[in-house]
């Protein structure tokens, strides 16, 4: 079934995607016909760029397409990584509820490190100031009845490296290996 022709087709699709991702690393050109500008750069048609982007936007490789903001200049100066010791069988349900709160941007289950680190759920809460983050946390504890659950907010006091919103500065690309 998996003929050579199929494999070649898969490979060339992969290369197409890599090229497009590479061209997009610095973002969409801010000109009247941005997809056409990308097309010229790649030697493709504008239609091809749009349809490849459409496929990419729906794939797992891109979390989302659009404006990537810097949160600090927008006034979001306070952030706490709140760590919780949630019973393992409740993690999924609690995390799903937490993620609905305004200011919550990330939520992960991570391994405990006993005895000194009993926390298995990490959620990031952003706010304009520290008090607002603490208010959001207090509201969450109250609403979700987490008062008996051991938790701690770890506020950030300083940020040293790459505090913008840029998650990838070098897509791990075979074709783009020469760059970044």
């Amino acid at each position: 079934m998996n003929s050579i022709a199929q494999r070649v087709a898969q490979q060339s699709q992969q290369q197409t995607t890599e090229l497009l991702l590479h061209a997009l690393q610095e973002g969409l050109p801010i000109v009247e016909r941005p997809y056409q500008a990308l097309a010229q750069q790649l030697g493709w048609s504008e239609d091809q760029v749009i349809s490849e982007l459409d496929a990419l936007a729906g794939s797992d490789r891109v979390r989302r397409m659009g404006i990537v903001v810097k949160h600090r200049p927008l006034g979001f100066k306070a952030n706490a990584m709140v760590v919780w010791d949630i019973p393992d069988d409740k993690v999924d349900a609690v995390a799903a509820l937490m993620s609905k709160y305004e200011g919550v941007t990330l939520c992960y289950e991570r391994p405990r490190r006993m005895p000194e680190w009993p926390y298995n759920l990490f959620c990031m809460i952003h706010g304009y100031q520290r008090d607002q983050v603490l208010d959001r946390l207090a509201q969450m504890v109250k609403d979700l009845e987490l008062g008996d659950i051991d938790h701690q907010p770890l506020f950030s006091t300083r940020c040293f490296k790459q505090c913008g919103g840029r998650y990838v500065n070098k897509p791990k690309s075979q074709l783009g290996a020469g760059h970044g």
């Binding site: 991702l21 997009l24 690393q25 610095e26 973002g27 969409l28 801010i30 990419l56 936007a57 490789r61 891109v62 979390r63 989302r64 397409m65 659009g66 404006i67 990537v68 903001v69 810097k70 200049p73 927008l74 913008g164 919103g165 840029r166 998650y167 990838v168 897509p171």
Partner: peptide, 9 residues
């Protein structure tokens, strides 16, 4: 205010 305009990988 913005880092970039495009995909978040």
């Amino acid at each position: 205010y913005l880092t970039r305009f495009g995909p978040l990988f």
